[in-house]
Computed example of a mutant assay.
Amino acid sequence: MSEQAAMAKITKNSAEGGILVKLLIFSISLGVVPLSSYFGSLKYIWNGNSTYAAITAVVSANIVLITYIVSSLLEDRQPITLSQKSLPETKKQR
């Protein structure tokens, strides 16, 4: 029974937080941001130097990944709600 309760809690948290929406946004930005930064910096910043444009694309991809990781960690540290605090105490918790 505790497995079912844990799965219900996970499903409830994912529905409230919009985890799937955040994953889709970061997935799309992981494809779009490096490509646009590569071609944009190739044409406007580095004047045709593809090595520097590739470095710019790699840095932008890493920024997107780090932003996703930090936002996931901050979402994981949300405060415990009152309904989670009011659970009965078990012998293991004493």
Rank of each mutant, 00 (worst) to 15 (best):
L87V: 05
S14W: 12
I55D: 02
A5D: 14
L87Y: 05
V70T: 08
S83F: 10
L87T: 04
R77I: 00
L73G: 10
L23I: 13
G40N: 00
L30D: 09
V70I: 15
R77W: 09
S29H: 04
L24I: 13
S50W: 12
P79H: 03
N49W: 08
E89K: 09
F26S: 10
S29Y: 11
K22E: 14
T67G: 12
L20P: 00
I28F: 14
E89N: 02
G48F: 03
Y38K: 00
A54L: 13
V58E: 05
G17A: 12
V59Y: 07
A53N: 01
E16P: 00
Y52W: 13
A57F: 03
K85L: 15
G17S: 08
P88H: 05
N62S: 12
R77Y: 09
S86Q: 14
E16M: 10
K43N: 08
I63P: 01
S41I: 01
T51H: 05
E16S: 09
M7Q: 14
Q78R: 15
F39Y: 14
V64W: 02
A6S: 08
I45F: 11
I66A: 13
I19V: 14
T67P: 00
Q84D: 14
Y38H: 06
I25G: 03
A8D: 14
A57H: 02
K43V: 15
L65R: 06
S14Y: 12
A15M: 11
S27V: 07
L73W: 09
N13T: 05
L23K: 02
T90K: 03
K43R: 10
I25R: 05
L24E: 05
R77D: 03
A5C: 05
N47G: 06
Q78W: 06
T67I: 06
T81N: 12
A6T: 05
T67Q: 09
Y44L: 11
L87H: 04
G18Q: 08
E3H: 15
S27M: 11
